[in-house]
Design a protein around this nucleic acid. Sequence first.
DNA 1: CCAATAGTGTCTGTAAGACATTATTCC
DNA 2: GGAATAATGTCTTACAGACACTATTGG
Lengths: 232, 232
Amino acid sequence: MLQARRTLGAYARPAVAVDLVILTLVDCALNVLLVRRGEPPFEGKLALPGGFLRVGDGVEDQGEDLDVAAARELEEETGLGAEDVLLEQFATFGRPGRDPRMRVLSVAYYALVRPELAQRVRAGGDAAATCWEPVAGLSEGALAFDHEDILRVALERMRERLDTSALAFSLVPETFSIPELRTVFSAVKGEPQDPGNFRRKVARLIEDGVLEKAPGVRRTASKPAALYRFRA
Amino acid sequence: MLQARRTLGAYARPAVAVDLVILTLVDCALNVLLVRRGEPPFEGKLALPGGFLRVGDGVEDQGEDLDVAAARELEEETGLGAEDVLLEQFATFGRPGRDPRMRVLSVAYYALVRPELAQRVRAGGDAAATCWEPVAGLSEGALAFDHEDILRVALERMRERLDTSALAFSLVPETFSIPELRTVFSAVKGEPQDPGNFRRKVARLIEDGVLEKAPGVRRTASKPAALYRFRA
DNA sequence: CCAATAGTGTCTGTAAGACATTATTCC
DNA sequence: GGAATAATGTCTTACAGACACTATTGG
């Protein structure tokens, strides 16, 4: 109590960043948006996009919300608005020494981008150093700071939530075929999904009204597939 | 990039607190450890225990890790060490205005305390204003700041993880009966669990080697129950 | 003995996994 | 026609929920 009063302004404060694990599907593989660092520390290494939280100067203006900061960073890096992208906070990283310059906390979000929007990203990004990289192809030590940890935890959380949330529908086009949705599950879980069994699972979602049929078909190299849409 | 350099020291930083949702089982009901505030803001209201993260002054000393801060707060409030308690970060709260004095981010942890340890808490706590309160009995607006949100999110996360993690074993004694474990599930899920079906679920854990039989029995008002122990 | 509850057994519906089969398109 | 794959069907096993029943203790 008393300690709280002393602490109020006296103690040092950490810098707080918001970092994004922006994911999409490219050729049936999970890709993450990375930025090539142009300055120390970790100059030349790849890093997750992110930036510092804007904090106001006083009582009247306390600055921006965490979710707003995440949406702002997303827009700056990709040109995409939060209405098109699933953006969810999943953990906060604060190990001392994770940034050699100073104490930095990173509030981490994952952002799931539909494949058709992902193509536009390069144009929208402010940095020419921005690129999509396959998650599976990242070698140990390729990322700056503790960003490998952040990426790993993001994927763990997504795997936990894949079957119990609407997360997967944010990685397919607005209208999608069942095989397309299956590639999302295969990519996130890291193992192929049986076509027949997966279809049955989705069929239950349709019966329950979670999905509905959409007009048109998806043309591929073989038999076209019917399209569906996520409801509400 | 350039912006990052400018941000490095120039922008205002938020204060960062670590708040704890410390839970235990009292009479088959989930209870949370709360502190009566003795000063504004929210004077007289109940609040989650917590404190500010210790941040070093420079590059050499960057201060304590988030998990260490959580463990330190736990020890200060309860006298319990982190080795006896399941302590997990679950979310970070940072809405502007959540603390009227200044911008404060709260990194939130839940801490699950075995019932037999919970009894010792009053002695260990540094504040006489510390008390266990039944979660279900908390009326709207009883908690300070946004601590009702924090508590709600903690319970949501725990419900998600109850069936897929070892979380429940941290809310029973080291050796426990199946009915005792059942009360944990009932309390967290908020609905009674069928004794027969629950027993079958636990029987599978025993077959799989997750649990093992422990010596002795738990004596109650009726037929005594066999005891089990969590392995590894 | 009686109340209470630990512990067992049964039945049903649902879902997952493995896998075979048919149907429809592109080339 | 043939390759590819969408779409359907079958069989088995596992698990959840509802519920009846038996066993063993304290009072």
